[in-house]
Amino acid sequence: MAHVQGSRAAKSIAIQVAGWVLVVAGIAALVLPGPGLLALFAGMALLATQYDWAERRLEPVKKAALRTAAESVQSTPRIVLSVLLAFALVAAGVVWGLHPASPGWWPLADRWWLPGGWGTGVTLIGSGLAAGAMIVYSWINYRDATD
């Protein structure tokens, strides 16, 4: 019996940690590269399984995320730009991870050229892949609403 309660408690803690990480990442991605509303919605959906306040606030976030997803594939230029930006994020992540030497025009000390190495690079690559997945999801679910 104690094992079952411990297992439930561990699951609850894991859900809460994942939910809060996604909420914080989603809020950050609202101003940084990445699918902010999608991450925010995913985090709120996880937290809604644990908290009534999150469940009450889930619907507006869901509507905003779905509206943004639909708008992202409303025109060919938006789709092309979104795909290019997703590729650019992945490419920037690879370059950041490889950490090439700083260029001659770089005005600061070399240590300030692409700080973070692969930690930052993997984050950018993940954001680009998540954005790409969101583009595909939006295309599959909302392409009929375009044009």
Rank of each mutant, 00 (worst) to 15 (best):
V73C: 06
E59I: 11
L47P: 03
A9M: 11
A25L: 08
Y51N: 12
I125R: 00
H99G: 11
S72P: 08
V17R: 05
E59K: 07
L46A: 05
V95Q: 06
W106H: 11
A18E: 09
R57T: 04
G6H: 10
A64N: 10
N141P: 10
Q74G: 15
V136S: 03
I125Q: 07
Q50W: 13
Y51K: 14
A18M: 13
A69P: 13
I140E: 06
A130V: 09
A2W: 08
L40F: 05
L114Q: 03
G117Y: 01
M44K: 01
Q74T: 13
A86I: 04
Y142D: 00
T123K: 00
S75D: 09
A54M: 08
L40Y: 06
L81E: 09
A145D: 12
A39C: 08
P100S: 14
E59Q: 07
I125F: 13
L22R: 04
K63D: 15
L37H: 04
D110F: 12
G116Y: 03
W20H: 11
V23L: 06
G34V: 03
E71N: 12
W53T: 14
W118H: 10
G126Q: 02
S102Y: 07
W106L: 11
L89E: 06
Q50G: 14
V83E: 05
G117K: 01
L85V: 12
T68F: 09
H3V: 14
Y137N: 10
S127A: 15
G121H: 02
T120L: 10
V122N: 06
G93L: 04
V122L: 15
G97Y: 05
A133G: 11
G93M: 04
V90F: 04
A88N: 05
V4A: 12
A48K: 05
L84A: 15
R56N: 12
V90K: 05
L30D: 01
M1N: 08
V17Q: 07
A145S: 10
G36K: 03
W53P: 07
G116R: 00
G6E: 12
G36R: 02
E71A: 12
L124W: 01
Q5A: 14
A54G: 06
T49F: 06
R111G: 00
V95D: 05
L108G: 11
F87L: 15
I135Y: 02
D52P: 12
V23M: 08
L37Q: 03
L58T: 01
P100F: 08
